[in-house]
Design a protein around this nucleic acid. Structure first.
Length: 278
DNA sequence: AACCAGGTGGAGC
DNA sequence: GCTCCACATGGT
């Protein structure tokens, strides 16, 4: 990976390790889109456009290049990860389909809110709710609306969340945000190991096993977790011939299988299964 | 018109 | 520990 930061531009070479489409559409992030000849993404209060400039060349135009180097984790070498995961036959096709997926380093509060909303929901409606929250409580920029900071989120009422289509998750959101605002929960969380952090997250209303795993993976880069949702449940049945029905046990089995690379395996398998259904 | 969606919390065993 | 079930909301 060759990376140059030139004023407001970032040039990224070696597309074997970066594909904006698979990275953005693989289910880890909700506020993105495709327009004209570029992909765009809003991450917290930052915005980027991603242009393909050659077979293996990308140009990222953003408000904050250094933020996006960290966000896309461009300094991480995926070659070793891919080599290691190549040992699993079940990943051969998913890794071919999802070539260029990078696990993003996203904002903790944004992930907590996003994945509480994701419970028993459809992806387009999750996106709609998050966009409405941003439009009503986030800062307006020329490129759109930032995701609100915690201080702004704490002003949102249960009725507001319901009007944004969050449904029965609305009281969970209000209570969880109140906890994050009034305690040192977040500062303590990042210090904990994966097991303790998961336990702490599950104490938040609206956060169970699956949502906690998503937060750990997408915000805290904990790769030793395997979120099990309806799609991964299908993967487990179809690709692993699994008989277990308890999702916690399925997750445990998959973490035992993929170890410290579980999070990557999960993302390839999730993307693969959803692509196949289309 | 039932059924389902990136599940979770609570009740009852 | 486990198994049911209700929970808003919108799309098919």
């Amino acid at each position: 990976m060759i990376l140059n930061i030139e004023n407001n531009d970032i040039c990224v070479l070696d597309a074997n390790e970066f594909d904006p489409e698979s990275t953005l559409t693989c289910g880890q992030v909700f506020r993105y889109g495709q327009k004209d000849d570029y992909w765009w993404v809003i991450a917290g209060e930052n915005f980027a456009k991603i242009y393909q400039t050659g077979e293996k060349n990308y140009k990222i135009v953003s408000t904050n290049p250094n933020f996006f180097v960290n966000y896309f984790d461009f300094n991480k070498d995926y070659a070793k990860i891919i080599t290691e995961l190549d040992k699993f036959a079940v990943l051969t096709e998913p890794m071919r389909i999802g070539r260029g997926i990078r696990l993003l380093r996203q904002d903790l509060v944004e992930m907590i809110v996003s994945f509480i909303i994701s419970a028993c929901n459809r992806i387009p409606r999750i996106q709609k709710s998050l966009n409405m929250i941003s439009e009503h409580f986030g800062e307006k920029h020329e490129w759109g609306y930032a995701f609100p900071a915690l201080q702004e989120l704490s002003k949102i009422t249960e009725a507001d969340f319901k009007s944004f289509g969050c449904g029965y998750r609305s009281p969970y959101l209000v209570q969880t945000i109140a906890t994050l605002t009034s305690t040192d929960f977040l500062a303590q969380l990042v210090l904990k190991d994966t097991i303790s952090a998961k336990k702490a997250l599950k104490a938040l209303p609206g956060v169970g096993d699956k949502v906690a795993d998503c937060i750990l993976l997408f915000a805290l880069s904990r790769f030793d977790v395997f979120p099990v949702d309806t799609w991964i449940h299908k993967v487990y049945n179809d690709e692993f011939g699994g008989k277990e029905k308890n999702r916690a046990k399925i997750s445990r089995f998959l973490v035992e299988t993929f170890g410290s690379l579980s999070g990557y395996a999960q993302q390839y398998l999730f993307y693969y299964k959803r692509q196949k259904e289309k």
